[in-house]
């Protein structure tokens, strides 16, 4: 439990050493103290914007997980959906999400909608792909057993393939929790009037590098916290899964 703190302490010490013993100007790399001061001095401003980003991430995570889960279930349940939808999903990954951000802002505006959509776009595929992988890898022995029991297709999916795929779904959800902030912040960079991404772009333009770093620290802490919370919840829920 102590290791992460040691890692962070060493990292901050190295950072401080670089600022103290090299000639890098503060507008390129502010000192840890300056970032701490920015965090403290602008706490209210940062908290308000962090809350906006947090809401975008949570909404995106919720909607993306729901949509991704439903897509995977649909593809697993229907051959037609598998033939039509899956190739489109794979192809959609060839389009960089970066390139879509300006479009989404144009279509959905400067508000929260475009950011939530970006987060959904970023996490949809990992959630779907992992869950679908799990749904397709049901232990063949179990499928045989179910066949001798005259299982109906729907019950087989709901009572056997779905629960058996939950550990795989959980892997997708962990990835989603880690990358959903990327989508939200990306949306904010392109066009927003609030949020941590907005704070960064704004501070960058005014060469308030310490404030930019402060926003970055909050974003990182938020992402790590979210990942750990999701991971802990999944471990609790899937206690039956080996290694889960």
């Amino acid at each position: 439990m102590i290791r992460p703190f040691v890692t962070i302490a060493v990292f901050i010490a190295l950072w401080w050493a670089v600022t103290a013993f090299t000639a890098i100007p503060p507008f390129m790399l502010p000192t840890p103290q300056a970032v701490a001061e920015a965090l403290w001095g602008q706490a209210g401003y940062l908290a308000a914007n962090a809350w906006v980003t947090f809401c975008e991430i949570m909404l995106g995570l919720f909607a993306g997980t729901l949509l991704g889960g439903l897509a995977a279930l649909g593809i697993a349940a229907s051959r037609t959906l598998q033939r039509w939808l899956w190739p489109i999903l794979v192809l959609s990954q060839a389009i960089p999400v970066f390139a879509l951000a300006p479009l989404l802002v144009l279509w959905l505006g400067f508000g929260i909608g475009s950011k939530v959509s970006m987060a959904v776009l970023v996490i949809f595929f990992p959630v779907t792909a992992n869950f679908l992988d799990g749904l397709r890898r049901t232990e063949p022995g179990l499928l045989d057993l179910a066949r001798t029991m005259n299982a109906s297709r729907l019950n087989l999916l709901l009572h056997l393939r779905l629960p058996a795929a939950l550990p795989a779904f959980a892997s997708g959800l962990r990835i989603a929790a880690a990358i959903a902030p990327i989508g939200a912040v990306l949306g904010e960079w392109v066009g927003a009037s609030s949020g941590l991404g907005f704070v960064m772009i704004n501070a960058n333009a005014r060469i308030q590098t310490a404030l930019m770093f402060a926003a970055l620290v909050i974003l990182a802490a938020m992402t790590i916290g979210l990942y750990m919370a999701v991971d802990a919840a999944l471990r609790r829920l899937l206690r039956w899964a080996p290694g889960g």
Binding site: L145, A146, M149, N150, A151, S152, N155, L156, H159, L160
Partner: peptide, 8 residues
């Protein structure tokens, strides 16, 4: 009771 579950 798996069989009953799977047969609905």
């Amino acid at each position: 009771m798996l069989g009953a579950t799977l047969r609905g």
